[in-house]
Design a binder for these strands. Structure first.
Lengths: 220, 220
DNA sequence: TACACAAGTTAGACAAGTCTAACAAATATT
DNA sequence: AATATTTGTTAGACTTGTCTAACTTGTGTA
């Protein structure tokens, strides 16, 4: 049985491993920063996780989830995303409100609850932010996506996920009438600052920043 | 902000106060037993709760929730019973499975979540065990109920709640085809051992023990 | 290659919640 | 009323997760 805190460390490591699929190892400071604790605290916890064979690492080395650790972490992520979907779909929470509550709900221990919840939601594949929801067996649905910043002028694409899930960004998207599924055409890419001009069907063209384009995943 | 543990102590005190409405004070040992901790542990926590003005008590005296403590405890009970209802109604959990998971869910912190959940469930007044669900303002719906053991021969009554919520009892009820709303007639009360003979509409008469009769609430 | 800085660890402390063992107060019994 | 029993408290210890401050290791650059 894992403690609430141990679960958070595992999930953090899994999330960090997604940030750079080719280099899935994390550093102590990186992990501490992600969780909002001091590096010393992270080191202590690392020893414990290593003891339980949930991570592999040696002093001053990189941290990697073991197969077991990855399984546990994936199960937590599954719960997190299912709860987010529940809050969004059934309880009318908005895009930017679901995360905080799901952070708590993800720690509820009940196999049955998760699976019943998934069934109740009709086996969703993606959460409200477009992120894939791991299946009960640990499989993670694949999705064909690229950052908007990689799209070239003239292409038409559809929003499939957000990279940045901060409230400010999500609220900005809402204001722009952009949500998962929105289609638009990239009219122009400005080399100078990386900004681009996009046109949502039947709307006026609109200019968005490079930062914006690096926060949104689309399907070409 | 209350810790998970503090919340449990408050809820325990509220539950104990219900056990004997005229004498709502609790003792240290009683409280410790309810929570499954040692009396020494309960004493320590009591000091903390007193410090926070959630209970009134003095050394070697009885424990009583303050107005504030009662409010907090009621809010937790509200969450507990709403979650139980959710699990039972929406996720097909059985009568005897809901409690354990609700014990965890009741600690989730989100005003919005509770209220949205209540709305989603269509403002239920009673949980799957027939217990009243406190309203957002703290009001607790009243219910007209007596223990089955107080009913005399010849009376017809309807099951409105269970006093004992243990899995064994609930499963036994299920086997007997008795649930909230079931109507039956009390045919005979045996003075010798307090057992009684009941007849559910269109079923054969059946004998139940005194213990059984003291575990079920009915409306005459 | 040597040094400086970044990254990571250790030691010692603290708060929360728990325990056991010993003690004190209150209540019940004869 | 004296004593026995129950009830409750205190003291001291342990665990978990956190911190700060000081130290060690690794690495990039001049």
């Amino acid at each position: 049985m894992l403690s609430y805190t141990e679960e958070n460390y595992l999930k953090a490591l899994l999330m960090l491993s997604f940030q750079n699929e080719e280099r899935p190892e994390a550093g102590t400071n990186e992990m501490a920063a992600y969780l909002g604790v001091k590096p010393a605290t992270a080191t202590d916890m690392l020893k414990k996780l290593k003891e339980k064979e949930l991570v592999t690492y040696q002093k001053y080395g990189k941290i990697l989830l073991t197969e077991l650790g990855r399984e546990k972490a994936t199960a937590i992520l599954r719960k997190h995303r299912l709860w987010e979907t529940f809050l969004y779909e059934k309880l009318d929470f908005s895009w930017d409100e679901v995360h905080e509550v799901a952070e708590q709900l993800e720690h509820i221990q009940s196999e049955k609850l998760v699976n019943k919840l998934e069934e109740f939601l009709d086996f969703p594949e993606f959460d409200p932010h477009g992120d894939p929801i791991p299946k009960a067996n640990g499989d993670i649905p694949a999705i064909d996506k690229v950052l908007l910043s990689e799209v070239t002028a003239g292409e038409v694409c559809k929003v499939v996920a957000v990279k940045d899930t901060s409230a400010v960004f999500l609220q900005y998207l809402e204001k722009l009438n952009i949500t998962i599924g929105t289609k638009f055409k990239v009219l122009e890419v400005i080399d100078f600052d990386g900004s681009l001009s996009i046109q949502i069907e039947k709307e006026e063209p609109r200019s968005v920043s490079m930062k914006f384009a690096e926060s949104l995943f689309v399907k070409r």
